[in-house]
């Protein structure tokens, strides 16, 4: 059931050996999770093939498309990871699921649950409140850039323009890719519509001037 389309071939062997274990782990999680991915927004069955043409149009965006064969997009990969439940909940709260299910290409820096846990107490809970949706969107969009960047594409001193309009600075030290000097890429997973780079700290956009 799980997609194992020679990821190494597809990303040109982009994943360093040290990260292979992470990859494997994530794929294993995926294989279990893919059996029953429950999206809050895909209850409306779009593939109602035999029924007469009645009823209302399907709700939801591309995330509601029923497709258990294609390689998973960045959202589905994140949903399948038990280390990214906070991120997934935040993406839903920020209404970003539809956009990230689009054709892309995206690079998503995906903080783990531990990374969110490193924020001051109450930060995440605060951001998850409806009143703070704009702030949450700003933070999450700061984790996405349009273009599918492989791990080896990052260069020391590189600046990435993020979806929220701010920049992230890349440094490469001892083979490690570090963002804004504090978030390290600890695994890279190809998705159908881009790349996910798992990071160990949340990126905080610069304060508005």
């Amino acid at each position: 059931m799980i997609v194992t389309y020679s990821t190494s071939a597809l990303c040109g062997g982009a994943i360093p050996n040290a990260k292979f274990f992470f990859m494997k782990k994530i794929l294993m999680i995926l294989s279990v999770a893919s059996i029953a991915i429950l999206f809050s927004c895909n209850n409306d069955k779009k593939t109602d093939q035999s029924a007469a043409a009645t009823g209302t149009p399907a709700a939801g965006g591309q995330e509601a498309v029923q497709d258990d064969q294609s390689q998973k997009d960045v959202v589905k990969v994140a949903v399948g990871s038990k280390d990214h439940t906070t991120l997934v909940a935040a993406l839903k709260q920020a209404d970003l699921v539809t956009s990230l299910s689009n054709a892309g290409p995206f690079t998503v820096f995906a903080p783990t649950n531990d990374a969110f846990g490193k924020l001051p107490a109450g930060t995440v809970d605060g951001l998850m409140k409806d009143d703070n949706k704009a702030d949450l969107q700003n933070i999450l969009q700061y984790h996405v850039t349009v273009s599918a960047m492989k791990a080896e594409s990052f260069t020391d001193g590189q600046t990435l323009g993020m979806v929220n309009g701010d920049n992230v600075t890349v440094s490469v030290k001892d083979g490690k890719v570090i963002l804004n000097g504090n978030a390290t890429i600890i695994a890279s997973v190809p998705a159908s519509n881009g790349m996910i780079h798992v990071i160990d700290a949340v990126l905080l956009p610069p304060a508005k001037k």
């Binding site: 779009k46 035999s50 007469a52 009645t54 009823g55 149009p57 399907a58």
Partner: peptide, 10 residues
């Protein structure tokens, strides 16, 4: 003859 947007034909 109307098939609403997002619905399939028979």
């Amino acid at each position: 003859a109307y098939v609403p947007p997002g619905k399939f034909d028979e």
